[in-house]
Computed example of a mutant assay.
Amino acid sequence: MKDKLVTRGYCLILAANFLLYFAFYLILPVLPFYLTEVFHTGSAAIGIILSCYTVAALCIRPFSGYLLDSLARKPLYLLAYFVFIAVLAGYIWAGILSIFIMLRVVHGLAFGMVTVAGNTIVIDVTPSSRRGEAVGYYGLMNNTAMSIGPMTGLFMQEVYSFNTIFGCAFLSGTLGFVAACMVQTPPRAKVKREPISLDRFILLKGIPAGITLMLLSIPYGMTTTYIAMYAQNIGITLSSGLFFTFMAVGMAISRIFSGRQVDKGRITQVITFGLYLVCSCFLLLSACGTLFPMAPFATETLFFTIALFLGIGFGTMFPAFNTLFVNLAPSNQRGTATSTYLTSWEFGIGIGLVAGGYLAQVTSFDSAYLAGACLTIVSAFYFILKVAPHYHKNKLR
């Protein structure tokens, strides 16, 4: 008989995760408009100011993993969650730009901690035999929030004030915090306190997998940031926001089967399948504007089909990679494993933000996505030749 997955604690952590990310994505697309209209900030400065959030989140990741493995996890999770929603309220009263920047940095630190903590706690409250499935549905909450949060934020921006949007994000975060408070976490077994070393901040055995993940996230970062501009360049007339909707649908579809395959021990096979799919998608994306120059309908069909299969590819790999990192770590280093997984992913996204803009400026978006496709091919070969054998040799469960 299968271990029970759907429990009260699991449903509450799913709700807390969805409401957290909904608050995050609700304000994400309106912040550039907020900075322009309220603080009269230039476009170059907007990118620097908003990137403070990502830099702060990356800086706190390794330390959050260490703290979660050394101290009680739920209090740290709740503290970070509380700071996250407090900053949402702070945006309402940020009267000068310097205060907004400070709040943005604090927000990034809180987000970096709360996401690592949430990913670690969901593993604590679910049976190990269904971990891949549990992580898959947990990640689906992020994707669902990504598919509806930005559209809701942009709709509200046309009708309501910025303070109203921040207030709604605060309300969503508050409801999520209430759900998080109600999660019952199992007592942690006492473990011998290890001396501080590099392995307490970064899962050293996870570095090869982290390299694969970083190479994958570089073109992903290009896509999330520049796909609207690329769509305009190749003559896509439909809203480019649909690209993210199709990606989210693809991720939702992938969760139906990927988590179960991971729980059957097919982690490396699932990741390999996702890598092949993502490689093909980025190669097609780089050529999307030139394959059907006289058939705009065919170009649009291909463009959004690519989005759907990109979502399936990445959605297939996310729970598998998360489980891979956790399986390489002892139970008292789950936080470090999760932190290394998320740090690798977001570091690559940061590179994609910078490299994608530079390549598009000196060459073209087609060339930028072709470079991204080449990175995914390198990532696939590296995973098959190095990471998969390393994982099977060093996995602990």
Rank of each mutant, 00 (worst) to 15 (best):
F22N: 01
P32D: 14
F33A: 14
R131C: 01
L79V: 15
I49Y: 11
I99F: 14
P62F: 05
P75W: 05
A86N: 00
F84E: 08
G118V: 13
A117K: 00
V106R: 04
M146N: 08
I27A: 00
F100L: 02
G90W: 05
Y91E: 00
V55D: 06
I60C: 07
R73K: 15
T54P: 14
L67D: 11
Y81D: 05
P127M: 04
C52E: 04
T41C: 03
F39W: 09
H107A: 07
V83R: 11
S70D: 15
V83M: 13
Y91I: 06
A72S: 11
L35C: 09
S98I: 08
G90Q: 12
F39L: 07
Y25K: 05
L12N: 02
L103T: 09
A94V: 14
F63K: 02
T54R: 08
G9F: 07
R104K: 12
I27E: 01
G47P: 01
C52I: 08
E133N: 10
V55L: 11
I121A: 12
Y138K: 02
T54G: 10
H40M: 10
V122R: 00
P29A: 09
F22G: 01
S129R: 10
R61L: 08
L71G: 06
G47W: 06
L28I: 14
Y21I: 10
F63D: 02
L140V: 13
C52R: 07
V135D: 01
N143T: 07
F18T: 01
E133G: 05
